[in-house]
Amino acid sequence: MSDGLTVSGLSKTFVSGGGLLGGPEQRVRAVDDVSFAVEEQGSLGLVGESGCGKSTAARCVLRLIEPDAGAIHYADIDIAKAGRHELVRIRRRIQIVFQDPYSSLNPRRTIRQTLTEPLRVHGVCAGREADERAGQMLSEVGLSRDVLNRYPHEFSGGQRQRVGIARALMLEPSFVVADEPVSALDVSVQAQVLRLLADLRDRRRLGFLFISHDLGVIRHFCKQVAVMYLGRIVEQGPVEELFREPLHPYTRLLLDSSPVPDPAARRDLSEETGEVPSASNPPPGCAFHPRCPHAMPVCREIRPATTSPAPNRLVACHLYG
């Protein structure tokens, strides 16, 4: 077993409705047989559009959502099988940073309470020592120690996000799941927070599972990337290579659709590329076939297996079968 995070065959289906008065039962395969690995101190980007299952997959890694199937290992810990007691151990090693800086901090708790609570709950330390650590952490994320007694509503979005990052690091984890950590921020502040995360990663030797819909952010932060579509990983590989030479037609569509700040790079998408189908009723075979310019008869019937057409590259597409 490697030292980093390994996930294999992860699946999660949400069931809603059904029962006596619940209307027709709806089953959504949010995550469908997903496998990936993040090396110790590595950073994997999980990219995809809304509803592709990337956030669900991330929460399954932390067991914030209980997966239906799959194996999750981090270092020597079997996360998927961990009991109550072991989960507490995992909480100290893997932490999460959230997207919405307004919803991720308790409005009724001071920054001091927010930062020292994890230390007290895990019996690390309390009182003056906990305050001291909270103060150190605040300066590490670029905030003044003086803000300990303040409430979240007194801060801007970027500052709140720094507090959220500080809280995640209070237990000194070695791995961080970041769920769209800069998506709610303005461009100028987004760059500040990205730089902070990169600094912390290098200084504290953190591993990262970085979820984002923004290809630019992923390229900037991650070495490896996995592209998700309708609950499945369609392609993964090293970021530079994958963005330069995408193999899966969906990755190509995503890259072509993401605008770059350069009028010379204007693209005219000549084909109508369709809508993302509903996850409760995904197309048979390859889920991308209704939007795919290269769709073949086989794509409508058989789900493509993951193959490796080049070193370090994985793709699930019949073009490479």
Binding site: V189, G216, L255
Partner: peptide
Amino acid sequence: QAMPRHDRMQDLEPI
């Protein structure tokens, strides 16, 4: 300079 691009690598310079 603060906007990360997917088409090339550049150093981000936050404001």
